[in-house]
């Protein structure tokens, strides 16, 4: 019967299509999240047993200065890495949007290529570059060794973590910026030049303001995964480079304190949701263009 495929007549039939994905979502996302959320109000009652006692002690402990400090540092790291990503990605996105059409595809593939490589492998590759006898230092000493420019101790420092965070998350920034810049009417830039602006002024007075929606979504899209980064600080950082995700991981594994780990994880989650909500509210306030 042809009518079975008519969504005007057979609404419930089409609604049934929602069933499987909804079930999947409930089973593998909502339920585990709910379990972890419940854990955050629990106490350890044995090696592997957790009693959901409704206590707020885990959250109280998560708000102790030690953990607040790490959370603060994670926010600062994420903010700085996101900012560096923006500064690096903007010219890249602008260049791609102005590239000839055939080249554009290749440049975009170039930006996304690292995405298709395992994060762990990429991070280890960075170690090979940054370590004391790594590629960077070899190049540096062979080029400027005569001037006393010795090997730089980048590995196991905050600097190495920052390099790693920026490197991994750059595509998150380039793609939304590119999407915003590519949509921009070229005659607006030409009009700015025609009216007496140089290229740099045209970019700052016309291109950047009009790319604000793209910049905002790029900031959000980059900041959230950077804040939850685990591998970069773990593999590239030193003892003082711990970010909040490393602390959370330690609670679940070595410390075997799931309730506390769950509280920390949800603290991070609340922060992120708050950020997204604030951004959505700001977006709604701006006049539609």
């Amino acid at each position: 019967m042809a009518n079975e495929l008519d969504w005007h007549r057979n609404k419930s039939g089409f609604a049934a299509l929602l069933g499987p994905p909804l079930g999947w979502f409930l089973l593998f996302f909502a339920v585990p999240m709910a379990v972890v959320w419940a854990y955050s109000f629990g106490t350890n009652s044995g090696i592997a047993d957790i009693e959901i006692s409704g206590t707020f002690a885990n959250y109280a402990r998560a708000l102790e200065p030690l953990y607040l400090g790490i959370l603060g540092k994670s926010l600062a790291f994420a903010a700085l890495a996101t900012l560096i990503c923006l500064i690096v990605a903007f010219p890249v996105a602008l260049a791609i949007s102005f590239a000839p059409p055939q080249l554009k595809t290749w440049l975009l593939i170039g930006v996304m290529l690292p995405f298709w490589t395992n994060l762990l492998i990429r991070t280890y590759a960075l170690i090979a570059i940054l370590r004391d006898e790594g590629l960077l230092n070899m190049a540096l000493t062979s080029a400027f060794g005569w001037a006393g420019v010795g090997p730089l101790a980048i590995m196991n420092s905050n600097m190495a973590v920052m390099i790693g965070l920026v490197y991994v998350h750059l595509p998150f920034m380039v793609l939304p910026l590119y999407a915003a810049l590519d949509r921009l009417d070229r005659s607006l830039i030409e009009a700015a030049l025609d009216l007496g602006a140089g290229h740099v002024r045209a970019i700052f007075t016309i291109v950047v303001p009009l790319a604000v929606p793209g910049i905002l979504s790029g900031l959000l899209l980059t900041f959230i995964p950077v804040l939850g980064s685990y591998l970069a600080p773990d593999l590239l950082g030193g003892p003082d480079s711990q970010m909040i995700a490393n602390v959370i991981e330690r609670q679940f594994k070595r410390a075997n304190d799931w309730p506390f780990g769950a509280a920390l994880a949800f603290l991070l989650m609340y922060l992120t949701l708050f950020g997204i909500a604030a951004q959505a509210m700001m977006q709604r306030k701006r006049p539609v263009d």
């Binding site: 005659s187 009009a191 007496g196 303001p209 009009l210």
Partner: peptide
């Protein structure tokens, strides 16, 4: 000469009025 160094101004087909 670059566009900003010419004694001419243009009315664009799309008008190119800056929306912001």
């Amino acid at each position: 000469a670059p566009p900003n160094r010419r004694p001419v101004n243009m009315v664009f087909q799309s008008y190119a009025v800056f929306p912001h």
